[in-house]
């Protein structure tokens, strides 16, 4: 069994990184920017989804009963709703529960209590298909005792369209920055390989296998990936916390996921993506030089 010293490969990788320090720095800077942008877009989309859910805009309709409807009339409304097509779930929210929910979301209703509660009973309906929502809206309006059907379809569509727009920009950014990152990493590793071309040719003459020659460069790519992802993580953390403070002060209606909830997802996502990009850059740049 052949035994190789792992420190040899790691040492060679770091030697290469420092020998071409300018290109190594450029690779880290570009890959880090890529990761910050990817992370930013991902967190934006995640927060949009959380808020859509928060506001009940995802496949939900709220119907309000007449304020003077009796308990049996309210119950009949619930039964009638349950018989309609395209219904996934029906949840009855009493006027007291409705008030409580409002108080939880906004702290400006402290003086409202059960005696002066203006809210009627309501049903929160979760439907199955978006395409049939207009038909459902019509059918709900035909049920006696329903005062208002709030489908918020227009708002939901606007937010969904915004989300798709963000995704489109995100994909383009990802593609452009991804190509630029890989291109710069390829050149960094190529410089490293070029400066060691004599060494590589000697290795080849004495019978070194392709993986023995490649491993230091692959480690070099992985190190670029790890350094970029850790740096990107701290930058993302700083930017996210700044925006979080801004939003929490000025836009209290919006829910913002705390960074502590997504810390692991961001860090490991960045490291995974960074290492894959770094190693991919190394493998592409090595191809031609490693021909025996």
């Amino acid at each position: 069994m052949r035994r190789y010293n792992p420190f040899y490969f790691i040492g060679q990788a770091f030697e290469g990184l420092f020998r071409n320090s300018v290109m190594s720095f450029a690779s880290v800077a570009v890959l880090m920017s890529l990761l910050v942008v990817i992370g930013g877009f991902t967190l934006l989309v995640t927060n949009i989804d959380v808020n859509l859910e928060q506001f009940g805009l995802i496949n939900q309709i709220v119907v309000f009963c007449e304020p003077d409807a009796s308990e049996s009339e309210i119950e009949d409304i619930g039964i009638a709703i349950g018989k309609l097509d395209n219904i996934a779930k029906v949840e009855h929210v009493t006027k007291a529960e409705g008030l409580e929910q409002m108080k939880d979301q906004y702290d400006i209703y402290d003086d409202v209590d059960e005696n002066n509660n203006p809210l009627p009973d309501s049903y929160v309906i979760t439907y199955e298909e978006n395409e049939k929502v207009v038909e459902l809206d019509y059918q709900l309006k035909q049920i006696p005792g329903i005062a208002k059907v709030n489908n918020r379809l227009e708002l939901a569509t606007t937010i969904e369209n915004f989300k798709h727009g963000v995704m489109l920009v995100f994909v383009w950014f990802l593609a452009i920055l991804g190509v630029v990152s890989i291109f710069i990493i390829i050149n960094t590793i190529k410089l490293s390989v070029f400066s060691r071309r004599n060494e590589i040719s000697i290795m080849q003459y004495v019978g070194a296998t392709g993986w023995f020659i490649s491993l230091p460069y692959i480690i070099e790519g992985a190190v670029i990936g790890i350094v970029s992802s850790v740096a990107a993580y701290f930058i993302e953390w700083y930017i996210y916390s700044y925006i979080e403070r801004l939003v929490m002060t000025d836009l209290q209606m919006i829910t913002f996921l705390p960074f502590s909830d997504i810390r692991g997802f961001v860090l490991w996502g960045f490291i995974g993506l960074g290492v894959v990009t770094g190693v991919l850059g190394s493998v592409i740049s090595l191809g031609r030089y490693l021909k025996q």
């Binding site: 004599n198 000697i202 080849q204 003459y205 004495v206 019978g207 021909k291 025996q292």
Partner: peptide, 19 residues
């Protein structure tokens, strides 16, 4: 290509420029 390194281990090579 895969077997070339193993073949070269059977050879010793000396060049004009020492390398």
């Amino acid at each position: 290509e895969f077997k070339v390194p193993y073949y070269r281990r059977e050879l010793g090579v000396v060049f004009q420029d020492f390398r």
